[in-house]
Structures are given as C-alpha cells and as structure tokens.
C-alpha cells in the first residue's frame, strides 16, 4: 500500500511519484518549473512567499506546491493565467515593501527576486512603495545585514537553526513590522551565539545578508543546506 507509486498529471504531463512527496519535488524531477522564493532544499518548508501556488482540479482553492503532498489522480496546473497574474502581484508587493533598487544593490545580477521579476515579466510596481530606511549593520568583521533588502523569506533563520544549530537569527515583532533579529536585537559584532559561518549569506535570495568585500557570485550558494544535510546522513 504505502510504497505504491502515485500517478498524477502536472500541466497535462503524466507523472509518477513516490508517497509523501510534495508537488514541488515531483515537478522538479520532471523538469517542470514552479517559481519559489522561501523554499530551499535541505531546509524545512515555510510556505510564506506564496509564489509556488498551483491549482488542483476539483478545488477552487490554491495550494502551495512546496508543502502539499501529491495524491493519486491529482490534476495540477502550475501555469494558468490567474497564477501568472497572482505571481506578478506577489512579486510587486515584495518589491514595494522595502527599498529595492537593483542598480545600487550588491546582489544585482545574482538576486533571486530580480531574476524572478524578469522571468515572470514584472515590468512595473503598481503599488505605492515604502522606501524603508533601516540602518545598515556592518560592524561585523565581514557579515553585513541590510534589512531594507529583506523579503522575510526566513531562509537565513532556518539555515542558522537547522543546519548550523546556532539559532542566532529569528524574527522579531509581527506583521509589517517583522524583522530579522540577532540575539536580543544586538548588533552583529556583539552577538555571542553567531559562529560567523556565512551560511545565512549563502542562502539569502537577495542582497539583505552578504559578505563584505567578496564577490557576491562567490558568496551565494543555494545548495549549501542540502549538501550539508546529505553529508550528515552519510
């Protein structure tokens, strides 16, 4: 029973999957691209960005591909006009939430938010922009956090807790005031729990956390969490 493969279709392509896999995992195996931002292989799922929403036939609701497990006979659509439209709105909202100016960003050219915006055709932001002005914390020897570029995907928090185990980072406040905090809202240089492992900078999808004086392309390493997870299981 439990090991029988599941048959389903994604965008009219017939696919087979193992039990307990998510829609996103199956889609990846078959080379079907579903945009994601908060999801990262090797970390727990967060389901916060809502970019990976897909339609399932027979339901009017939308489902997050990163956390919804596949079931037999599912008919999944990943790319309807509505989904494309919604993804553009989601990206526009993220772009308007804080201060995103690509030309002065360290991550320019290496930014997942930028890449997705280009890919999905976000050519303007129809909402009022916030232009936040949070102070830059660059006192650490080489790690810098610029909260103006943060999209609250919490990858850094999860990699710090789950992979590194230091739990230096977490969220503070809530709603629109939510921020990444270091210990008790400390400056990074004063953090006693941080191991300076750079994993947060490696997984940050934007230029919010980066390594100073390093080529951004060298810093970013999306696979770090998955790599370490697999190594640990050896």
């Amino acid at each position: 029973m439990t090991n029988e493969p599941i048959n389903l279709t994604i965008d009219n392509i017939k696919v087979t999957a193992k039990q307990d896999t998510t829609i996103l995992e199956v889609a990846k195996q078959y080379g079907i691209n579903i945009p994601t931002l908060c999801e990262l292989e090797g970390l727990s799922s967060y389901s916060g960005c809502r970019l990976c929403l897909v339609e399932i036939r027979g339901s009017t609701k939308l489902f997050a591909a990163c956390t919804t497990p596949v079931t037999s006979g599912m008919e999944i659509t990943t790319n309807s006009d509505k989904l494309k439209e919604y993804r553009k709105i989601t990206l526009s909202l993220l772009l308007s939430e804080r201060t995103h100016i690509c030309s002065v960003c360290v991550a320019n050219g290496n930014c997942e938010l930028q890449d997705l915006s280009n890919e999905l055709g976000v050519d303007h932001v129809p909402f009022e922009r916030e232009w936040t002005n949070h102070t830059l914390d660059s006192g650490h020897n080489f790690l810098v956090i610029d909260r103006n570029r943060c999209i609250l995907c919490t990858r850094c928090i999860r990699v710090c807790q789950e992979t590194e185990g230091a739990h230096t980072l977490d969220l503070k406040n809530r709603g629109k005031d939510a921020q990444i905090t270091i210990d008790f809202d400390a400056l990074w240089k004063n953090s006693s729990s941080c191991t300076s492992c750079r994993k947060c900078a490696k997984v940050c999808p934007t230029g919010a956390i980066y390594v100073d004086d390093d080529f951004i392309s060298k810093t970013k390493d999306k696979n770090i969490a998955n790599f370490l997870l697999k190594r640990r299981q050896l």
């Binding site: 960005c49 809502r50 993220l94 308007s96 939430e97 406040n173 709603g175």
Partner: peptide
C-alpha cells in the same frame, strides 16, 4: 488585520498594508 497579521505570508503582510494605503 494589518496590526494582527503575523507577517509570515506576503499577501497578508504586504497586501493588507497596500489596501490600507
């Protein structure tokens, strides 16, 4: 709802603020 949103997902955290504006 803006004040009570937990801030996890984009539509609720940012979208509601836009409606408010």
């Amino acid at each position: 709802c803006v004040a009570e949103s937990c801030g996890k997902c984009t539509p609720c955290r940012v979208g509601l603020v836009k409606i408010k504006e």
